[in-house]
Design a protein around this nucleic acid. Sequence first.
RNA 1: GGCGACGUAGCCAAGUGGUAAGGCAGGGCUCUGCAAAAGCCCCAUUCGGCAGUUCGAAUCUGCCCGUCGCCUCCA
Length: 479
Amino acid sequence: MKLYNSRTRSVEAFEPLRSGEVRIYVCGMTPSAQAHLGHARSFLFFDVLRRYLKHRGYRVNYVQNVTDIDDRSINAAKATGGYYHDIVDGYYAEFKASMRKLGVLEYDHEPYATNFIEPIQAMIRELIEGGHAYVTQDGIYYRVATFANYGKLANRNIDELESGARIEIDEHKEDPLDFALWKFAKPGEPRWPFEPYGEGRPGWHIECSAMSRALLDPDGHGFDIHGGGADLIFPHHENEIAQSEPLMARPPMANFWVHGGLLLFENRKMAKSIGNFEPLSQLLERHDPQAIRWLFLQTGYRKVMNFTEDSIGAAAIGLARIKAAYRNLTPATDGEPIPSPELDRRMEAALDDDVNTAAALAVLYDVVNNSTPSREDLAYWLGILGVPPNDSWLEEPSAQLAPDFIPKILHELNKLGFVIFAMPPTAEATIEKLIELRNEARLKKNWSASDKLRDALQRCGVELKDSKEGTTWSVTVSP
RNA sequence: GGCGACGUAGCCAAGUGGUAAGGCAGGGCUCUGCAAAAGCCCCAUUCGGCAGUUCGAAUCUGCCCGUCGCCUCCA
């Protein structure tokens, strides 16, 4: 398959470094605030990539870290008097619940930065020994000038970066570009001992270098894919490379660097830092998680995407068509290969092309419109995309009857002047009774009465369908 | 100021040299007493603008216009 590599800025044939195994490290959450849809887009993409690599026959070792120590959670703890890690745990639990709803596979490793203090410190020591880091009065810093390739990933040169006015000025640093590997603790801050330098906590970038090395690449020969949102390219991933590669036997740190396009909300970046977002958990209460995934699958993963509320509705309707087709398909016969060669060929052609999920969806629509794959065949590919059919797909779309259905329908019938004797006790039986009455009217060709009954039910959220087999009802689905 | 991405139908969007996928919306039809549901069909002579390269350009080059992102914590 082909995959876009940010490191070379081109689409390249993907081959794992070790035969049969793909090692992926994706920069995960900093749970010091709620996750938003932008996070979901990024992690949903890597979920599809994993699933597809597995389809391709690779063993996938997927690591997604948790930055469970950062300034914001510490400050939040200071402000509320709480314990910083309780804040982190709360947000992370919420994030994980959302990921489960979205059908994201469990990660193979889910390392917390604070569980890797030792490897982080070992790495900092090596960097100091190699002259790549130095100690100041408030922390230990990486000496950017010692790494010749600094800026290569982000396509920036050091002079340009230096001339930018937006770099923080710190009199203790040798160079404005130098960044913290270790921050000495101020009173009341969480701290870990680090002899002989001083108690403190790791900087943000070092954890990814140390944890990817510990979990994926102890030999220093590099791993396959390092991923994250496009906003991480600079400085985060640039700094990771600077930290890792001088210590490696055989750079580069990652063979492929893969970055997901950012999600915009009202044409501005969706980010907690500027408050331009809605919490993911809240959005998931309003929308079908599979529809959200479907929406993202319709757009190339590297493209900037502007999110609108309407777009989820359109995606949900499109998905509903696939669901309807799935319902109408027949199960595979014995011995029928899953996936079938034809669909396999077409889907792989789409997904081999830098995970072109939009083209893959077009294949599915085309297949469903023009042929009759087996249910399992369609389900297989929906599964690769992370939208596996579940039992509810086999049912007509349904919603819950309003709790006040009986009083509402009685009121409607009253207005129309219907008098019903012996009204059944449950809503369901009431509906059946009214269908019976309506069908009696229809037999007598009393269309006006029958339509009034149907309309009354419609106003109470119940939709009738007449077919040759009789009349069925369902609760109106509001998308 | 530097670096980069994007601009394709009413909306979303695939397509990076060979003559415009797909979805939503819209229109028509089948079925039906009428509906609903489902299905079928139609829906860009054209890809932000202007030049250029080419037998051939949405795709390559140049300039211009517009939107956004990164350069600071960020998926």
